[in-house]
Amino acid sequence: MRVRVRVWGGTAALVLGGLLTAGCGGGKGTADESAGKPVSGGYPVSVTDCTGARTTFSAAPKRIVTSNASALELLLRLGAGDRVIGTGFPPGKGTLPRDLDAKARKVEVLSESVIPKEKLLGSGADLYLDTFASMGSMGGGGMGDAPTEEEFQAAGIKHIHLKSTACAAGSEGPVTDLSTVEADITSLGAVTGTSAKAEELVAGMRQKVDAVRKAVRGTAKSARPTYFFFDYDAGTKQPTVTCNRQIANAVITLAGARNVFADCDGDFKQVGWEDVIARNPDWIQLGVRDRGSDAADEKAFDEAERWLKSNAATKGLKAVKEGHFVRVGSERTTIAGVGNADTVEAIARTLHPGKVR
């Protein structure tokens, strides 16, 4: 089984995902900040980001700009897509489910990559939903000049980050579940007044993940197969691996496998092929980004597999010799979102065919 999506933001290292903690001082929007879940619907609603900065909404935003297609997809799934007036890093045609794709086509593309500062500030937005990892600045990592919080305020734009991605690299410990993604969905649902849909999405994710957990719980952790996410599109000369703060670590763990680079603190890291050889994984995921069609995707998966089989440094790996390849695209593995639960299910079906149906 393969999950099809398109690259959302240039490189996965620059686009991660988020936890928004909903809460406020009182009234209908009163929330339990320690749990990160709104107690009841209504406004005002407040959210806090990685730095503890709080943004309060007295009403649902009406003109939203998204930093990339992952944020856009989340709003579309919540039923708030009609309020999105622009996006950066737009989805490729046909890379979203058909109903969402038609709605995404109606959203103005403000930039094929990072939205220029002047265009963003002059967009007329009342909310900018930011999934980029660089908190408070898109300037890091070659992302260009970014508005300051004072400039956002002067333009009348509230600015919030998705914490499950924007905060992931600096988290206190390894990411081993989808709780921050679920909290993001719940909190963004509170902000946009779509809490009922948010609860439905979270329930669907939990149902899939819990079924996999139940199916593999009899397999001791030490007996679970080791797993390497091969980011083919990030370059083959020096592999880029997913570390224990990346959402992929949670996806792999929940699917009943062991990330061979789970001892790497952070989100992504470049290593040498000798490091991969030393860990000799049982399974390798062919992490290629969506090419826009089933045929093009299959061709990319074939290319990644051929490279591993022909390269002197990798052809002797256990997974390569045994043909243990998982064909699931990069985006739904490394970018936080509803699709992470589908990837958990897809990987588990491949690795544990007798247990996960």
Results as ranks from 00 to 15, higher is better:
85 I>W: 02
86 G>S: 10
86 G>R: 15
86 G>V: 13
86 G>L: 10
87 T>R: 14
89 F>G: 07
89 F>D: 09
89 F>A: 06
91 P>T: 02
91 P>R: 06
91 P>L: 03
91 P>H: 00
92 G>A: 10
93 K>I: 11
93 K>T: 15
94 G>N: 05
94 G>W: 02
94 G>F: 01
94 G>C: 06
95 T>F: 02
96 L>M: 03
96 L>E: 01
97 P>M: 10
97 P>Q: 12
97 P>K: 05
100 L>W: 08
100 L>P: 06
100 L>H: 08
101 D>N: 04
102 A>F: 00
102 A>I: 07
103 K>E: 03
104 A>G: 00
104 A>N: 04
104 A>D: 04
105 R>K: 12
105 R>V: 10
105 R>N: 09
105 R>W: 00
106 K>T: 05
106 K>W: 00
106 K>A: 11
107 V>M: 02
108 E>A: 15
108 E>H: 15
108 E>L: 14
109 V>E: 00
110 L>K: 04
110 L>A: 01
111 S>G: 05
111 S>Y: 01
112 E>N: 14
112 E>I: 00
113 S>F: 07
114 V>T: 09
115 I>C: 09
115 I>F: 05
115 I>S: 08
116 P>W: 04
116 P>N: 08
117 K>S: 02
117 K>M: 08
118 E>Q: 12
118 E>K: 13
119 K>W: 10
120 L>F: 06
120 L>D: 01
122 G>L: 11
123 S>N: 14
124 G>K: 09
124 G>H: 05
125 A>F: 06
125 A>N: 15
126 D>P: 13
126 D>T: 11
126 D>N: 10
127 L>T: 10
128 Y>C: 15
128 Y>Q: 13
130 D>I: 08
130 D>L: 14
131 T>A: 13
132 F>D: 08
133 A>W: 12
133 A>E: 12
134 S>R: 05
134 S>T: 12
135 M>C: 09
